[in-house]
Design a protein around this nucleic acid. Sequence first.
DNA 1: TGTGCGCCTGAACGGGCGTTCAATTCAAGC
DNA 2: GCTTGAATTGAACGCCCGTTCAGGCGCACA
Lengths: 222, 222
Amino acid sequence: MPRKTGSHGQITGPRIRQAALRLFARHGYAAVSMRQIAREVGVQAGALYTYTPDKQALLADLLRSHMAHLLETWAAEQRPDAPLDRLEHFTRFHIAYHLDRPDEVFLSYMELRNLTAENFAEIEGLRRAYEKELEAILHDGRAAGAFAIADTRLAAMALIAMLTGVSTWFREGGRLGRDEIADLYWQMVRGAAGCAAGLDAAAQGSEALPPGPPRPAAALLR
Amino acid sequence: MPRKTGSHGQITGPRIRQAALRLFARHGYAAVSMRQIAREVGVQAGALYTYTPDKQALLADLLRSHMAHLLETWAAEQRPDAPLDRLEHFTRFHIAYHLDRPDEVFLSYMELRNLTAENFAEIEGLRRAYEKELEAILHDGRAAGAFAIADTRLAAMALIAMLTGVSTWFREGGRLGRDEIADLYWQMVRGAAGCAAGLDAAAQGSEALPPGPPRPAAALLR
DNA sequence: TGTGCGCCTGAACGGGCGTTCAATTCAAGC
DNA sequence: GCTTGAATTGAACGCCCGTTCAGGCGCACA
């Protein structure tokens, strides 16, 4: 069983996945060819098939491992007990995780439709599991009287959509830093959850950034 | 100038746009061929080029007319004066408009990256204009002391992301009706804006759908 | 009834697609 | 230094792509 140390297999495999992730996220699954991916890796197109059975499996693997890693990372977090703290924890975790992985996030939201039915069902299941994590927080918090939420399922979908949206406009080095953004989103999430402390804290927030003088709203983000 | 009444030009043109919209939204711009569009219309591929200079212009036209129509429709709305009413009006308008046009919405969010730089700049400008409409509401409302919003630009992006997200999970005939959905989203928007009346109304909302007994959260939407 | 033209066909163009595979390279183990 | 087998090449397969264009059809007008 020769050829172990000098073997490129341990290197080329990840490089292919990395190149595919970048290109799929930038141009879309259907618009990227296997030859483009191979060129990015510095290899001929045929070599890709040592590492993936086909293009579809390459996409499915990327989405599956992104969702699995998200769930694992979330599961490994230390969780607070109080309803409000749990919600804040989820909010800040979600934003930080998504800001760190713009390509993965983009891919996971855009390319679900390019999965075969079987792969779609699997990835969709992982996404549901993540949504259920937030829904459980909302549900428990409501039962404890901490949140005023009429429908926890819809609220979970709405909040995740709001939070994930950050990665569509965030640019490194833009007007707002990561911590600032997390603070601002948390303020809105708290309010949307109808939590009792929301108003006071929001008032504090708008003191920190005074509401009176209309700051120039044009030269904004990106 | 013969051939007027029996001319198919008035029919085929719109049919091409309609077919392209449906197919682009379902499968993605890059994954749909001109031949597929033509087949859907019942015509040969070459005939498409009587109505569009190329595939890119077809996409750009669809996105441009969607955004333009959105802005026109919004401009034609009767607008209330009070900050809270303005925000509610925008919220319900946005949800109703987007629920009625799932394909257009999907396309406008997914295919921006497939536009040429020139087309992208134009469509992006229209989208900015729409975002500015919400931002103005938030800005004025904050100045009037009705909202507790630290950053109106971020808040506008966050709220639009949240509201637009409805079209990713809404299915006709699902668990929640349109009016119910609009009510629930409005409740969350009001809270996120930190508006003073938010808490009371949210409490009312969770009376209407009692928070106590954990309703089955599984057989949910779609 | 003939003419003009809007509309559409159907074939063709050059090129890129996903995938396969025999042949080659080359380092590790014997 | 020979064997072995993983890694990779490069050519080939059949197919579909976006786009062009000469030609023909059929209706409104003269």
